[in-house]
């Protein structure tokens, strides 16, 4: 088992770190995974840098990274009305309006074929048809993985394990074993 790091394919940067942000202005990246919300992050950090584009590819077709959720607490006074409001806010029509206003990518499948979305392009990314590309990738998502209550903790432990390999602190096998021990520790 070799790692991307050993093959020289990793940027060796921790996401969201000062170095990571600075790398946008220092030609530090070749490629980057790009969920819908990352477009704005790249555009902001790489202000004035030319050459960013977006490709219509993803390993295994499509995947989901992040996004927002609306939750209605069961002990609220107006649970039903709140559910109605949440439903309205996340309906395709409203999601398209939000997309037109702020570029937030819709989660409803029905919204993915809306011309306002599929016809949109992004000037910073070489005028790419970002709406159509992201809609294609969203339709290629085979299933939505279940996220248990400890999802975030396990995800963090896994990221740390990858980082240890990236930094040369552990081999890939060692990092896998210590990741398993970390998950065990979460109880």
């Amino acid at each position: 088992m070799t790692s991307l790091s050993e093959e020289g394919l990793s940027t060796n940067l921790v996401q969201w770190s000062e170095d990571w942000t600075a790398s946008f202005q220092n030609d530090g990246f070749a490629t980057m995974a790009c969920p819908g919300w990352m477009l704005g992050v790249i555009e902001g950090n790489a202000d004035g840098v030319e050459g960013w584009d977006i490709a219509n590819v993803f390993p295994g077709g499509g995947g989901n990274w992040g996004g927002s959720y609306l939750t209605v607490p069961a002990q609220g006074d107006n649970v039903e009305e709140a559910q109605e409001l949440a439903k309205w806010l996340t309906a395709p029509e409203q999601q398209i309006k939000a997309f037109e206003a702020k570029g937030t990518f819709p989660s409803q499948v029905d919204a993915l074929t809306d011309p306002a979305l599929t016809g949109s392009t992004n000037e910073f990314f070489n005028g790419a048809p970002t709406g159509q590309i992201l809609a294609d990738r969203a339709e290629a998502v085979p299933f939505i993985a279940h996220k248990g209550p400890k999802f975030a903790d396990i995800n963090t432990a896994f990221q740390q394990a990858i980082q240890r390999v990236d930094e040369g602190k552990e081999s890939a096998d060692e990092a896998w074993d210590s990741f398993l021990a970390d998950v065990e520790r979460l109880g």
Binding site: V14, Q15, W16, Q160, A161, R164, E170
Partner: peptide, 10 residues
């Protein structure tokens, strides 16, 4: 000192 707040990868 980092964004995770766990004191580094290790």
């Amino acid at each position: 000192f980092d964004t995770q707040g766990l004191g580094g990868s290790d």
